[in-house]
Write a protein that binds this DNA or RNA. Sequence first.
DNA 1: CGCCGGATTGAAGGTACTCAATCCGTGTGG
DNA 2: CCACACGGATTGAGTACCTTCAATCCGGCG
Lengths: 239, 239
Amino acid sequence: MQRSVSPLRLKAVCSNCNLRELCLPVDLSVGEMQQMDDICHLKRGYARGDYLYRSGDKFLSLHAIRSGSFKTQVLHEDGREQVTGFQMAGEIIGLDAICTDHHTCDAVALESSEVCELPFDKLEMLSRKLPSLQRHLHKIMSREIVRDQGIMLLLGSMRAEERLAAFLFNLSQRFAARGYSSTQFQLRMSRQEIGSYLGLKLETVSRTFSQFQGSGLISVKARSVELLDLPGLHAMFSS
Amino acid sequence: MQRSVSPLRLKAVCSNCNLRELCLPVDLSVGEMQQMDDICHLKRGYARGDYLYRSGDKFLSLHAIRSGSFKTQVLHEDGREQVTGFQMAGEIIGLDAICTDHHTCDAVALESSEVCELPFDKLEMLSRKLPSLQRHLHKIMSREIVRDQGIMLLLGSMRAEERLAAFLFNLSQRFAARGYSSTQFQLRMSRQEIGSYLGLKLETVSRTFSQFQGSGLISVKARSVELLDLPGLHAMFSS
DNA sequence: CGCCGGATTGAAGGTACTCAATCCGTGTGG
DNA sequence: CCACACGGATTGAGTACCTTCAATCCGGCG
């Protein structure tokens, strides 16, 4: 997840932030783009394990991931915790915090990562001036809702193998969208974290990986994965 | 869920729409309120089983539920379906559709209901003029994200009894917020629908109801529920 | 009255969990 | 350089929980 995005893409969106997630049909003039750049100039680096923010922190900014990847996790009162998502370069993180002005989950770097800070008040101000930016912000939030609903479907009605197949397939697509191989990649998260995200125990994740390998769908060794039969993987959860 | 909201509330938010969900710290002047009223004057009634919209429908408007209740459900390609939420009076429905301009789920009335149409383009236009409305819209969307994450936690890491207890407790709070009893109410949805929402089979839902009744937590007969031990119910999933 | 859909209850079975041992790769220290 | 320790990953055996399949019950309605 380390390679940075094509200059063309960057130009087309926000030269500072690598706002891939803002990449749908955002159509800003050069001057408008400059305004966007102006409000999101602050960048910071994080090492593996660093917290971007913690549950309860005051909310001031959204963050655009320039490079690297993060996980978000919610903590239950009783200590139970669950990974709610894995975020990659170009995605926006922190949308959950808007409604209470405080973060409702932790965001932790899974590897060395760079983020770009987007002060939310300035973003709102600018989006009042730029309708296409406003629409974008809405789409990003809406997309997050749709994504969450997809996970609800996964957690609520899929078996372990289906969940893992869907997970791998989703990763594959996201790597592909960033110009990486859709069939060979390194997992940035542990079995434990995958399990937490998928509502499974780490042993079940491990067993299912082995099972997939046994049936020739994938080849897996520790965190290196190769998807040998993408259509088969897809059929696993969509049929 | 049939009683309408107090006039005071209505006045304080939007006299047409009963926008309880917009009720946080929205602070509009009389003139601004008038503008809000102007764009959301269209109302429609739905009978039990009627579709407010279907997955794939073109997205034009959000809908504010004035009275009654709805369920939203996503359909998987293979026919599998999952209830993603139950919406009550004062809540906004349709946020998932913004990102693609098409609805990604079905919305079905659980009883006779009234909704108020909120043309989204007009809402965006107005929210560019009214910062407090803009902030509100963002909060509503963010809240939906947080809600979904809560359900992900539930589906990913809770046992059947914990899920059902959390479900009943949540309903209780929402009824209370609307001025109804927090301990006695009618379920508007079937066991099947509850199960789909909670990632359980209807038989499991039924059994768990019976179990709760046996241990004195609740009294349940078909769709009439009385919560006898609210703290106990809460301890069921938060401890 | 009898039908129908929804709800309840029972028994058997399967999937994923728990507990535990082992393996493996990496990094550390002798 | 090798031994060892450590955390993450794998694998096995037994178990718990939820599902499946099926029968029965109940209330509303024609």
